[in-house]
Simulated scan of single mutants.
Amino acid sequence: MTGPIDPHTRIGHVHLRVADLDRALRFYCGVLGFTLMQRYGTQAAFVSAGGYHHHIGLNTWDSAGGAPPPPGSTGLYHVAILYPTRAALADALARLDAAGIPLTGASDHGVSEALYLDDPDRNGVELYRDRPESEWPRDDAGGLQMVTRRLDLASLRAERPAQAR
């Protein structure tokens, strides 16, 4: 069978192997602000934004105490977490700043703005927001022109809502 997948298809969740469940929960819930929905002892937990059953599953089933995969190996490049607004992305950046978590990159892709970092198990994490489609860069023929430019972090930090500062 050929043809595109149904355009309403979405990725529902990602499940990550971690070495230490409590450490992972401190990052995903304590720093990023996800809500713990369910925990299975010391082996697994499910976290979400907004009460969904889970956006991220964390488990130690095959990885308790394990080391991250070495550079140059296959596996997850990063999980991308979509924020609804620029202000919400600015709040995420403030959370990282407050926790002393360094960014590994920050890019303006024209269609989106993205922060890149590693979780405690060196799983890549992208925190991003999409620009409205009307603002996407296009060529003269109307084709999409994604770019990679340095993201203006000072401008992003200024977007954080005043009540959250």
Rank of each mutant, 00 (worst) to 15 (best):
R160C: 10
A64M: 12
D139L: 00
R129C: 14
G75M: 03
H13Y: 13
D91V: 10
A98R: 14
R95T: 03
R150V: 12
L93Q: 11
L115Y: 03
H55S: 04
R122T: 09
V147D: 12
G142A: 05
P84K: 04
E113Y: 04
D20C: 01
Y83R: 11
A94E: 07
F34T: 05
V47A: 01
P137V: 11
D108V: 03
D130S: 06
G65L: 06
P161G: 10
S63M: 05
V125T: 02
W61C: 01
A19C: 08
G30N: 03
V111G: 07
R26C: 07
A158L: 08
L117I: 02
S155V: 07
D140Y: 00
F46G: 00
S107P: 00
A92T: 06
V14M: 07
T85L: 02
N123P: 03
I11R: 05
D97V: 01
P120A: 07
T148S: 14
C29E: 11
L156M: 09
A158E: 15
V47W: 00
C29A: 10
G72V: 04
R157T: 09
M37W: 01
M37Y: 00
T42A: 15
F46K: 05
S155M: 03
D20K: 06
N123L: 04
A92R: 02
L103T: 13
H53S: 15
A45Q: 01
R23W: 08
P102K: 13
P71V: 08
G75V: 03
L96T: 00
S155F: 04
P161Q: 15
A94M: 00
R165K: 13
G30F: 09
G72N: 11
A158Y: 07
G51A: 10
I56A: 08
S107I: 09
R160V: 00
H54V: 10
R138D: 11
A114K: 04
L156A: 06
S48D: 13
T74A: 02
L144Q: 10
P84F: 03
A44G: 15
